[in-house]
Amino acid sequence: MIAAPDAPTPTVPILELRGVDAGYNGIGAIWDVDLAVAPGEIFALVGPNGAGKSTLISVAACLHPATSGDVLLGGQIVNGTAPRELVRRGVCVVPEGRSVFPNLTVQENLLLVTHAGVSVAEVEALAYERFPVLGTRRKQLAGTLSGGEQQMLALARSVAVDPAVLLVDELSMGLAPLVVAELYAFIAELASGGATVILVEQFARTVLGLAENAAVMSNGRIVRTGKPADVEDALEAAYLGEL
């Protein structure tokens, strides 16, 4: 859906932030953020709690306004676009915490995916094919699913929009390692199918092995960008402080 006839060449980042500042009630939360994510890659954004990662995600998805700077999707400036417009263009945010509607059934949760402009039959078929366990729980309330299954339901949204830009905040939080591995396998598969994935993680080492590029955030700024191996040494100072 991003690919129009005059499609951006592969060198154009699919998602880009240029000099973005943002905050709440006039109090800054992130400053001077530059970020470029190439199409089809898995990008890891890591940093301790409170570093501004979630704010960055909200700004990138136009859920929260930037006080200055630009957000670009496929080379086009999209600042101030309505979130529902971005959803239709393939941007899919999975916010922190279980991002499902707990008092709706699995099926009803998937019904809401149709806001992205796809048919309900298509969504259900793709979701149940990729996550068979969801197919067995159609009538169950989402709130009664296990943590892993809830994340699967949240991620199932991304299979319906293709190619997607998927922004996932704290995917692994509170989940068992085996479940995390399964979800990451799905992410890798999505990326190999052409989707772009931005993984925001507090637990840096969990995600760095998977990503092609990474950025470390601390106190509202990006302090290091590069290959996962290159950002390793910035982690400890960012998390546990220097004496």
Binding site: S172, R205, V207, L208, L240
Partner: peptide, 14 residues
């Protein structure tokens, strides 16, 4: 253990 609590452990993908 504290470092792991903060930084997480690498995921072993099957």
């Amino acid at each position: 253990r504290v470092q792991e609590a903060y930084l997480g452990a690498p995921v072993v993908m099957s």
